[in-house]
Simulated assay, not measured.
Amino acid sequence: MKKKATVILIAPLISGCITLVGPEGSPEIKAPITAKTIQKPTLAKGCQSIYRVNGKSYCVLKHSKGFEQIGIASWYGPNFHGRKTASGEIYNMYKMTAAHKTLPLGTYVKVINLENGKTAIVKINDRGPFVPGRIIDLSFAAAEKLGILGKGTAKVKIIALGRKEDHHYVTENYQKGNFFVQLAAFKEYSNAKAFMDKVKKSGIKADIVMAYGLYRVVVGPELTYVKAQEKKEEIRKLFPDAFILTID
C-alpha cells in the first residue's frame, strides 16, 4: 500500500552520514555512520536517543520547545551536494537546511547572524558540526542569506520554531504520536514489495510508505515512543538495522 508521508527520524540512519565540516575551503571530512560509531548508551533524562561520534556521546533532545543557543555557525556546500543526510534526505546546497548535533531532525530554527543582523529559517536535516565551538552547519543557500559565505563562519543565535505544519510551526512531542519501526528502504517499489513479503513470511506484519523519495518498509503504528522501542527491540532480533520514525 502506497502512502504519502512526512517522516521525522527518531534515531540516526545506520546508512546515513554524519557531517564533520568547517567553512568552505577548509578541510572537510564525511564520516559514515556505522554500528561502530553509533552505540547504545543508557538514555539520560531528556534524551530521545543518544549517538556517539569519535568517542563522544550526543543527546538528541525529545523536543525543541524553548531551545535557544548562541555560538559559531559554519557552512558546507558543493563537496556534499547530492549526498544523503542523517535524516535520509539528499543534501541540496540550494535549499534552506542545516546540520545540528542535538535538535530533533525535522525541526525548523530561526538563525540570526549577530554580526550583521540578517536572519534565515532553516530545517535541521543532518547531524554536525563536530568541530569544537561550532553549533550549526548551514547549507550554501542559508549561509548566503545570512551573509557568511566569504568569511566562512559567524556568531549566531538559534531559536527553535518546531516542526512545520500548514504554514505554521508546532513543538514536537515524541511521547505521543504515530511511531513506526522501519526495516528497510528502497528506490524501487517492486524491491520494497519483495522485501515486505519476505518480512511477512517471518511473522511480522509490515507495510510500505513513500517518504523522502524512497519506499520504506515499516511496522506500526504504536501510539507511544516506549511501545515503539519495545517493538523495535523485538524486530531487531531478525532485522538488526531497524529504527524508529514518526509518520504524520
Rank of each mutant, 00 (worst) to 15 (best):
A141D: 03
P132E: 14
S57W: 10
I18T: 14
A206M: 03
V209N: 03
Y174N: 08
T153P: 06
L149N: 01
G128W: 00
V226Q: 11
Q69L: 13
V199N: 03
R52G: 02
G177Q: 10
A194V: 12
S139E: 00
T42W: 09
E144F: 13
T37G: 04
A73M: 03
M1L: 14
L61W: 00
K56V: 15
T107R: 01
Y215W: 07
G162K: 00
G46C: 05
I204T: 12
E230S: 13
A99K: 01
V209G: 02
M1G: 14
I135Q: 01
Q182E: 15
E234I: 10
P240M: 05
E230P: 01
V60A: 06
G71T: 03
L103Q: 04
E115N: 02
F180P: 00
I204P: 05
A184P: 04
A192N: 03
Y91W: 05
Y215I: 01
G106S: 05
I121W: 05
S15P: 03
M93W: 03
A185K: 10
K2E: 12
T85G: 00
D197E: 15
E188T: 10
D166A: 13
K95R: 14
A228P: 09
I136R: 04
K36S: 12
A184M: 08
A192Q: 07
A242I: 03
G25N: 09
G66F: 09
K151I: 11
V21I: 14
G150W: 12
Y189Q: 08
Y58F: 15
G220S: 01
E24K: 11
K237Y: 06
K40A: 11
A192D: 04
Q39V: 13
G150T: 15
V209K: 06
E172M: 08
S49N: 09
K237Q: 11
G147A: 07
K231S: 08
D241T: 09
T107W: 04
K110F: 11
V131R: 12
E68S: 12
D137V: 01
K62P: 06
V181Y: 00
T153F: 14
L105A: 00
I8V: 13
C17H: 13
K205R: 12
P240Y: 10
V156Y: 00
R52M: 09
D126C: 05
L183F: 07
N178W: 10
I244H: 00
S26P: 02
V21E: 09
G203L: 06
Y108A: 06
N173P: 03
S139V: 00
I14H: 15
A31G: 13
V111S: 01
K84G: 02
Y76I: 05
Y225F: 13
G152T: 07
F130T: 02
A242W: 00
K155P: 06
D248L: 15
L9C: 11
L149C: 07
K65H: 15
G71R: 05
H168G: 07
A160D: 03
K56A: 05
K123P: 00
A160G: 08
S190T: 13
K200H: 14
L146D: 00
I70S: 10
T6Q: 14
I33V: 14
I235R: 00
K3Q: 12
E28H: 13
K101F: 05
L149Y: 08
G162N: 01
V218Q: 07
P129F: 02
